[in-house]
Design a protein around this nucleic acid. Sequence first.
DNA 1: CGGTGGACCTGCTGGC
DNA 2: TGCCAGCAGGTCCACC
Length: 274
Amino acid sequence: MPELPEVETVATALRSHLPGRKVTGVTTRCEKLRRPMPVKALQNLINVTIRGVRRRAKYLLIDMNCGQTLVIHLGMTGTLRLTDKDDAAKRHDHLDLQLDNGECLRFRDPRKFGLVMVVKPNELGEIKELGKLAPEPLSEEFSSDYFYRLSRKRTTPVKNFIMDQRRVVGVGNIYASESLFRTNIRPTTTVGRLGLKRCSQLVKTIKEVLNEAIATGGTTISDFHGVDGSEGAFVRKLQVYGRTGKPCVKCQEPIKKIIIGGRSTFYCPKCQKR
DNA sequence: CGGTGGACCTGCTGGC
DNA sequence: TGCCAGCAGGTCCACC
């Protein structure tokens, strides 16, 4: 799925297309994703103009002129595309917003782990999904001190910790493995045992990896792509993710794959220390 | 509260 | 060639 860089890539693209456009029609083809499709609230967006597009964590926030915000989470397999209004919808195209320029914002999500909500912006913090979110990883609030303080006495593996959206948002399974590889930290390491120096390196590296991924338009694994269908280029910079058995780019040792917290995790057993 | 494991969905693929 | 277990970028909830 889309982790922060992929969502940011989508948000940036939408920002240059959507603001000022008026919604002329809404079509829903699915009753329930992670939550029930808010059909009525979506219908109320007809004839409303789009004010702007923001991102918070892995959520896309499309602010409307009526004072409502359309919240979309892409889950594992969600995509947003701008299509021509005449393009026939395919299986798993769950939501269309027709626009006044003849285009259509189309949300597709085969696995239905995504989320569509319509809320008032001042209620964003009260929504369960958005209320408990941690600082943005690219903000100053996500600092070495913050990380060090928060991780003391925590016994969870460092990989789980950096993927926990209550500690820092936006880091998912790919960038977690990549960030730990670059800092030579083994994913299984108990986070509370990392010293300030390694915490500091990890924080810095997470920012670096996310920024690089944003700069290259994200990572395309199977079905992520930009709103125009383009593919993310960060996939070519992956050093451990999905490289089981292949030589480590630093030491040639075969990359190992293990399961942590139910998720595939990749690391170099020689470079990455406990 | 903290940590873990399963559930939620559908589609693709690797290995027999 | 064909089948199916296993796996997929996320989040939530129940349980210890």
